[in-house]
Each structure stands twice: as C-alpha cells, then as structure tokens.
C-alpha cells in the first residue's frame, strides 16, 4: 500500500472513530499530549487501524509509538514487509 494511502486511511479512521478534527492530524501530533488519547484509546486505535488497513501490527512495536508520524511509518513498514513476504 502506498504511504499516502496509508496516511489517508489512518486519518480517516481517527477522525471518524475518535472524532478528531482533520487539521489536528499532522505527523508531529503527539498521541497523548496533542490528540488527548490514553493507553486504552491506543488499543482501540490499533484495532481500528488493523481493521481499516488490513495490516496486522506487531503490538510490541505499536506500544512504542509516540506521534501520529510514528504510526504512519510503522503501518507503512509492516505493510511493505508483508508485501515482500
């Protein structure tokens, strides 16, 4: 999946499911400080993103993400790896 498609998919999920304004969804937005999410939201987010993109994430790696940019990168990385496999 192309990176831009991934970014768009994740943004769409976040704005729909977490009711976040699109203007807030920038790569440097911190999930907890800027988007007001907590650790439980992060789990819900993981499930929604997997559902939307069809990409199965490594939970351990996902627990390390801090910004939205980290999320885009991780999903893109896992997506390209699964394509190679």
């Amino acid at each position: 999946m192309e990176k831009q498609l991934i970014v768009d998919g994740i943004n769409e999920t976040l704005s729909e499911e977490f009711e976040l304004g699109i203007d807030k969804l920038t790569p440097d937005a911190h999930l907890f400080d800027d988007l007001g999410l907590d650790s439980l939201d992060a789990v819900d987010m993981l499930v929604h993103i997997e559902d939307k993109t069809g990409v199965k994430m490594d939970v351990e790696q996902f627990q390390k993400v801090k910004t939205l940019g980290d999320v885009y990168d991780l999903v893109a990385e896992v997506s390209s790896q699964s394509k190679l496999n």
Binding site: E17, F18, D41, D44, V47
Partner: peptide, 11 residues
C-alpha cells in the same frame, strides 16, 4: 462511551 470504543465493541 467514546465513539472509538463503542464502535469497536459493536463490531
């Protein structure tokens, strides 16, 4: 409920 959780639960 937060919409994100509510929709996850429903699914």
């Amino acid at each position: 409920l937060r919409k994100s959780f509510s929709s996850r639960l429903t699914k």
